[in-house]
Design a binder for these strands. Structure first.
Lengths: 222, 222
DNA sequence: GACGGGTGACCCGGATTCTTGTCGTGGACG
DNA sequence: CGTCCACGACAAGAATCCGGGTCACCCGTC
């Protein structure tokens, strides 16, 4: 499934954390056979594999008659990868280095799209806060908010974990790219940015739990 | 399982005390083989091991097809494992120095999450006292209490051991970090703080057993 | 070169933690 | 019955830690 072993584990763990069942493969050949054995609902596939290209893996899987959704992991610079990835039947791709939060959002989006449930419209909501993942839009009480990408991902993470206190470290691990080396002072800064935009009008939804972390939740009753 | 022998024993003892069955390994290689032999429900793994990195141990365990949950113990300053907690394929991580109480709470949380029970929502309760670990909230008879982190951990410890008298020493050993150097006068102080907040309204739940310790229990019938 | 997003450093004010000290209680013992 | 002592409750205070905000720098793009 991946060329860097720890990356496969990282992805698998993050997905398991979100309640998905996972299996990993360490080579393209293994990935093909594992797909036939496990009949997965979705495959996360690195383009760079030790034996063959991920795109080739995807082609073989398709050739075997499976239409399982595939999300590619691709190096940032490789613009060619993107093109070939989607043309070979991938459903989406994420460029490295990515954040776990980003990957999981894509996985959910693809699953949502392929399962024609239609009940879930690609929006997340909490109180009067609505996130449209497809349009990359956030509205508070109907008013469109102008967020930077990092702000958007941070808010989406807080929203998907609404009611749960997340530590700065957890936030850093999920929202920032997996090879980010900095400390978690950044999180404070971005919480500050978000508050300015999200809690500008209306009751505050982003709360600090001192020495523990941050939560998205309704304000306490007075 | 650990690089500092006494730490492994400390953790094992604490877990056994909580009713878990435990086995320890003193090196990474041993840990891998012991995992295959014992089929544990969960592994507590120190990142710094004498032979190989804990992350490598985790990788090998995963490679052998096991998806057993792993909780990492990691040094805070961690210049090495900048590749932070989740980045190594674990389900959760605790930074050293930690309190046993904290570690056990994490272990329970991971077990709760991985077992698709879903019925247990992460709350503990005794009488009209309810602790929500996700939201870091405590309520007495529905009224929200404002506790500091240390107060929270102390109350959680008393609650998980409701009805059992815990000595000041035990409390100190479980609630405070394992390398805490102070004396147990601090326990008295925090019991005092807790009483002021928890037993403020309603019958007292925190009781002193002179010369023995403290208990959380219902008041005696008059 | 200008611009905007992202990061890390800094300072301040306030909360939190831990220590110390005083006071009160209850039991032991002469 | 009086005294002493151990222990616990709590108050007060000092040191530390941490959150919030601001600001300056870096780096990419246009």
């Amino acid at each position: 499934m991946d060329d860097e072993p720890y990356l496969a584990d990282l992805v698998a763990t993050a997905l398991r954390y979100e309640g998905f069942e996972t299996a990993t493969a360490s080579s393209g050949a293994e990935a093909v056979s594992a797909t036939e054995a496990c009949k997965p609902d979705l495959i996360v596939l690195d383009v760079m594999l030790p034996d063959i290209l991920g795109t080739e893996v995807c082609r073989r899987i398709r050739a075997s008659g499976s239409d399982v959704p595939v999300v590619f992991l691709t190096a940032m610079d490789a613009t060619e990868d993107k093109i070939s990835g989607l043309t070979v039947g991938g459903d989406d791709y994420v460029t490295k280095p990515f954040s776990l939060e980003e990957l999981i959002a894509r996985v959910r989006a693809v699953l949502r799209r392929t399962k024609r449930a239609g009940d879930d419209s690609g929006t997340l909501a909490f109180a009067d806060l609505v996130i449209d993942e497809d349009a990359y839009e956030v509205r508070r009480g109907g008013v469109l908010l102008d967020l930077t990408p990092t702000e958007f991902k941070l808010l989406r993470f807080l929203l998907t974990n609404a009611g749960k206190v997340m530590s700065k470290r957890q936030i850093l691990d999920h929202v920032w790219e997996y090879d980010f080396g900095g400390n978690d002072g950044v999180v404070q800064t971005y919480i500050s940015y978000l508050r300015r935009k999200v809690d500008f009008a209306g009751p505050p939804l982003i709360h600090t739990v001192p020495r523990v972390g941050y939560v998205l939740r309704l304000p306490r009753e007075a």
